[in-house]
Every structure is written in C-alpha cells, then in structure tokens.
C-alpha cells in the first residue's frame, strides 16, 4: 500500500445526532439505489447499546490483533444486515381498497438495519441510548485492503479515502470478512463487493460527502486531519474530544465521534446525580477505548465554562454558527458545480 499524502477525516458529534437518518437517505439516493443494492446502507444510524447491523457485528472478528496480525472474521449475510422489505404499494394506492388495505412489509420482517431504534439499555428512570452513525472508517491501515488478493481496494493518494475498484473485484468477499466494522456489502446481481466511496466525485470537486452536507443536526465536521485551521484537526488533535470507534480493532479508523453526554442520571427521589453519568463509562470505553475518559472530561469542563457564562472555544467549534466552517475546504455548493 502506498501511503497517502494526506488523510481526510470526519467528526460526528453524537450530542447533535438526532437519529433522523437523513444522512442514510442521502447516501441511499446517491449511491445504493440500483438493483442488487437494495439492502445496502453504506451509511446507517443505529441506536446503541444494541446489536446493530449486521446483527452482532462487534462479535464478527476481522481487523488486527495486538501484534498487528490479521484476525479472521465472519462473512455477514443479507439476513444479518437486514434484508430490504417489500411493501404492498400497488394494493394500497392503486387497487381501490380504501382504508381496508394497509401498508405492510412482506415477508414479515424479523430484522432490519435499524431494528432496535430507541431501545437502548438501563432501567427507568436511568435508561439510556444514543445514536451511532456508522460508515466506512477509511482506515489508515484498512484490513479490507490487505485482505484482497486482487488489490482491488486502494487508498487514494491525495486524501486517504479507501476505494473499492469494481472493475478489479472478483467478488471473493475476503474484505467483508476482514473489515471489523462490517461496512462492506456483497452485490449478488453484480457479484462484487460495494462500500462507501467517501463521495469521491463530490470531494474531488470540493463538495463534502452527502451524509455530511445533508445532516440537519449539523453533527458532522469534515476535512483533512492535518489542516491546522480545520475543525476536524482541532477536534481530533488539539482538543482531543473526538475519538475513533473501536480503536482496538487496529485499523486506525478516520471517522471520529464526540462522545455523548446525556442528561444527568436521577436518584430515587428524582434528583439529578452528579456522581455517576447516565451512560456508564464502561460502555463508552467499550466503544471508544480509554481515550473517551479524557474527551468527556474536557467536554464537561468546557460545558461548565459556558454554563458560567464564559466563552468556550471548543463549544463554539462544536456549535459552528457558520455552517460552512464545518466543511472547509469542502464547502462548495454542489448546485454550483459544473457537471
């Protein structure tokens, strides 16, 4: 693998994600609306804690062990990802049955990509959940790339995005086994693997990926990790409040998350507790590794600063009153790009 000269990264603020799936639909409309791709969600938001998609992906192996050796992984199936459901649109809308026909999926669904929406964990009144958007991590050391015997997966020299070359792919699916995040899908119609392309046709023209730009919560920051004026760099490298998902998988993921700080836990009388957070720290550590502790400390300290009426540069960064600041230099308007 040739080292890319720069690396793009994304920061997703889990305190701002409202689980609306607009990112998911933006991606679907742009890239996965063809035959054979029905069940694919290159970007998906799931509620955590939960099994996610494919179901139980965190127990499916892949990535690298402590010594940097490839770990074998499970090959996820359509059923585990959650198959696309078919709906009786004709019956409901065109067959004159009025209110007697109701929209329903068939066959009876037993799993889906967002099956556990808003379930979470914990006991009332201290139950908790948050939304975790997931996509290809465009890893620094992509397990998928190393697994492919045909070198069909490469890292783009100029920005480090991980791209699967469909013309070279023979549909062997070792990448799907090796990816510990299980973000590669098999297209049975075309007999190839398919994955997030970090919207390279947009990025090449200075337009942020669809999932980033379409986010109504403005939860996503996008840019080069080494761009000292950029928000991604500041959040990841300077403030260190954005941490990668499952760093222990050993692939060096480049999608970062600002961990969630949910409302305070309540005691038996319903008063806010200050001694324990609502989301157990162990759970956040299991997702984001030990670095999440320091990230939460900084976040809470800066939050307190604003509560005292002081200015916080970090909070200003996370709020980003000028939306385009979150995307620079990928803040071009797609409507103004000549095709």
């Amino acid at each position: 693998m040739t080292e890319p000269s720069r690396q793009l990264g994304m920061v997703i603020d889990l305190n701002k994600c409202i689980g609306c799936q607009t990112c998911t639909i933006a991606c679907k409309q742009l890239w996965t609306n063809e035959e054979g791709m029905e069940y694919m969600w290159w970007n998906i938001v799931t509620t955590v804690p939960g099994k996610g998609t494919p179901r139980g992906w965190e127990q499916m192996g892949g990535g690298f062990d402590e010594k940097g050796q490839a770990r074998t992984g499970h090959l996820p199936t359509v059923e585990e990802f959650g198959p696309a459901w078919n709906f009786n649109y004709d019956e409901v809308f065109f067959e004159g049955k009025g209110p007697t026909a109701q929209l329903k999926p068939s066959p009876e669904p037993t799993w889906g990509p967002n099956w556990e929406e808003d379930q979470g964990a914990g006991e009332y009144p201290n139950s908790y959940y948050f939304y975790l958007p997931r996509l290809c991590n465009h890893c620094t050391r992509p397990a998928c790339l190393e697994a492919c015997p045909r070198q069909a997966i490469f890292k783009k020299e100029e920005n480090g995005s991980v791209i699967l070359n469909e013309d070279k792919c023979n549909g062997y699916r070792f990448c799907m086994e090796a990816c510990p995040y299980k973000r590669i899908y098999f297209n049975p119609k075309r007999f190839i693997g398919q994955k997030c392309i970090l919207c390279f046709p947009r990025v090449d023209k200075g337009v942020a990926p669809g999932c980033v730009r379409m986010c109504p919560g403005r939860a996503r920051h996008f840019g080069y990790l080494d761009d000292e004026g950029g928000q991604v760099h500041k959040l990841v490298n300077v403030w260190k409040v954005a941490v990668p998902l499952h760093p222990e998988y050993g692939t060096g993921p480049n999608i970062y998350y600002v961990p969630p700080v949910l409302p305070a836990a309540l005691d038996a009388e319903g008063r806010p507790r200050t001694d324990v957070p609502r989301v157990p720290k162990e759970y956040l550590r299991s997702l984001f590794g030990p670095a999440v502790d320091e990230a939460l400390k900084v976040l809470n300290a800066e939050w307190d600063r604003t509560r005292r009426g002081e200015r916080s540069e970090l909070m200003d960064l996370l709020i980003s009153r000028k939306w385009h600041d979150m995307l620079r230099p990928f803040d071009h308007n797609p409507a103004q790009i000549a095709t």
């Binding site: 050796q69 074998t72 190393e146 697994a147 015997p149 070198q151």
Partner: peptide
C-alpha cells in the same frame, strides 16, 4: 504463497 495475509491466516 497467497498474496493476502488475511487469506494466509485462514484456518
């Protein structure tokens, strides 16, 4: 002799 370390490591 497989080119992929992942494939070489498979049981």
């Amino acid at each position: 002799n497989q080119p992929s370390a992942y494939v070489r490591a498979l049981p």
